[in-house]
């Protein structure tokens, strides 16, 4: 009888603790936002990512021309009133193709990172909670995966299943899984030794509940930071793949394959090779700015650990 009261008491205390934390959270998020908008680079990054998002979603309405329509009066033209950023060798409008290209860049960065979080985070949690042989096997697999850069995975997958958007997302997603799993694991190793986990175990909560309700929330900050930085890297990888002809295939415009097609014409029209690279640079920079700011605000201890 006494035991039951104790257990019930403990549950109450735990749930009480959670509600207290929730109340604190709302004010903490306001403080967080206030601090976030004080960092100029973070604000620039957010605005740029938001604009890219906006133009990618509403591409069909805001582009001046259809990205695949050829205008034979303007072949390889420079900047002009009709075509702000010029045209390519087939007379297609560069600005419109850039805007459509941002779709691929964002789909790849978000798709790949969501995939890696969905696979990597549960693996890390399983590893930290069950310990022993499961932990050992999972981490050895992660050690093996980590030696394959995302570009190399993409190359391997492309030769087997062909180059497509799916291949690129899959490759970059898989390449990021070990990093996510390791971060969650290392964070979880600290959390699981704390008293509230023991209390939850004593309270008879299921493994599932302990993993997702008690361990996971404590790993969220580093996951968010790592995800944002990995998104920037994903954009870079996608561009690189497009440039070597192994990404999303033309005629779908991506920033990478636009540079690939423009490079042979470098001396005739350098603008064509430069402009998509500037977009890649700006988007990666924005993701990095947001990631750095989040890291400094969410978890100052991580400074210099994740990059």
């Amino acid at each position: 009888m006494l035991g039951w009261i104790l257990v019930l008491n403990m549950r109450d205390e735990i749930s009480l603790g959670i509600t207290k934390a929730n109340n604190k959270k709302s004010s903490a998020s306001i403080i967080f936002l206030k601090n976030f908008i004080r960092i100029p680079t973070a604000v620039f990054g957010s605005i740029f990512v938001f604009c890219t998002f906006f133009s990618a979603i509403f591409a069909a309405w805001i582009v001046p021309y259809d990205p695949n329509v050829m205008d034979y009066n303007f072949l390889l033209s420079g900047m002009s009133y009709e075509h702000w950023l010029g045209t390519d060798q087939m007379g297609r409008d560069t600005l419109s193709r850039l805007i459509y290209g941002s779709r691929i860049a964002l789909i790849v960065s978000f798709g790949a990172i969501i995939l890696s979080v969905l696979i990597g985070v549960p693996l890390g949690l399983i590893s930290v909670h069950f310990r022993g042989p499961i932990d050992n096997i999972l981490m050895r697999i992660m050690d093996a995966l980590v030696v394959f850069p995302s570009l190399v995975i993409a190359i391997g997958l492309s030769v087997a299943i062909g180059s497509s958007l799916t291949t690129v997302v899959l490759a970059i997603g898989i390449a990021n899984v070990p990093w996510m799993a390791r971060i969650v694991r290392s964070q979880g190793l600290i959390v699981r030794e704390q008293d509230f986990i023991k209390a939850a175990q004593a309270g008879g909560f299921s493994n599932f509940r302990i993993i997702f309700v008690h361990i996971l929330p404590n790993s969220i900050a580093p996951i968010i930071v790592q995800s944002t930085l990995a998104m920037g890297y994903a954009v870079l990888t996608e561009a690189g793949l497009g440039f070597i002809g192994i990404g999303v295939q033309p005629p779908t415009p991506t920033w990478g394959n636009m540079i690939q097609q423009a490079f042979p014409l470098l001396e005739k029209q350098p603008l064509l090779s430069i402009v998509p690279g500037v977009m890649v640079f700006a988007l990666v920079l924005s993701f990095n700015f947001i990631g750095d700011a989040l890291r400094d605000l969410l978890d100052p201890r991580l400074k210099g650990v994740i990059y």
Binding site: A239, F243, P270, S273, I274, G277, F281, V284, L285, Y307
Partner: peptide, 22 residues
């Protein structure tokens, strides 16, 4: 250092070709 980690390396190569070769 902030700029260099965000630049696609192949694009840096293209720009350097433009400057130093072309």
């Amino acid at each position: 250092s902030i700029g260099a980690v965000a630049i696609p390396d192949f694009w840096l190569g293209i720009v350097s070709i433009l400057v130093f070769s072309v």
